[in-house]
């Protein structure tokens, strides 16, 4: 009898967490639309440099290539964190989250270095439509990664305090989904902005 009730309560809780996952998925799709509009803006304004520097003159691919592989690897390690969690391995989970966060931090520091360099070379956000669109698109992605980093640290603290339960389990699943999503957006930034820019 008591078992039955527990099972029932557990099922209800489970449904709620599943619904929250679903809600987050809907947010991700709306975020996808946000990036879609920024990509459309970038493509439309591409080439309008108002006599200023063009992207192919200033882009330095080694840094961008490093950023790409770092973010891709961090997407993979966030998946490994979820795997550790599913095995009930809290140490493994937190360890992989730390690796993911460190990779994310190095991505952001490379991006900031790139932005600073571009500004020094005369391509600021107000230089031309080309660079306004560039900084808005790439900067919005960078902002997402930065928010993700803070969020990931908060989840690690919660995991340290409460361990793996249905709530922290959902939170880890969500941050991992978010991280994969950011990597997907970056693939398109890398392709459309950088590769096609220097092509």
């Amino acid at each position: 009898m008591a078992d039955n009730r527990n099972a029932h309560a557990h099922e209800g809780h489970h449904d709620l967490e599943a619904l929250r996952m679903m809600g987050f998925w809907i947010f991700l799709i709306t975020d996808c639309i946000l990036f879609g509009t920024l990509f459309a803006t970038y493509v439309v304004l591409n080439g309008n440099t108002a006599g200023g520097p063009t992207v192919s003159e200033l882009f330095e691919m080694p840094g961008v290539i490093a950023e790409t592989f770092i973010l891709l690897t961090s997407s993979f390690t966030s998946g490994l964190a979820v795997l550790s969690m599913n095995k009930g391995n809290r140490k493994g989970l937190i360890g992989w989250l730390i690796v993911t966060a460190l990779l994310g931090a190095s991505f952001i520091s490379l991006e900031i270095t790139e932005f600073v360099k571009l500004v020094h070379e005369g391509a600021a956000i107000s230089t031309s439509a080309q660079w306004s669109a560039f900084y808005t698109l790439v900067g919005t992605h960078g902002l997402h990664v930065s928010v993700g980093l803070v969020w990931m640290i908060a989840i690690m603290i919660q995991l340290g305090r409460h361990g793996i339960n249905s709530v922290t389990r959902r939170k880890v699943n969500i941050i991992s989904l978010y991280w994969h999503f950011l990597d997907v957006v970056w693939i398109f930034v890398f392709t459309i902005v950088y590769l096609m820019g220097v092509m």
Binding site: N6, A9, H10, H14, A18, G79, L80, V82, L83, M85, N86, K87, G88, N89, G163, I164, N165, S166, R169, N173
Partner: peptide
């Protein structure tokens, strides 16, 4: 109930659970 949930990681009990909620393999 919460305790039972937390122990899902023990071998033997987590197969049915995994197929329902936790996806993916190495």
């Amino acid at each position: 109930a919460a305790g039972a949930h937390d122990s899902h990681g023990t071998p033997g009990t987590h197969d049915s659970h995994d197929s329902h909620e936790a996806h993916g393999s190495l």
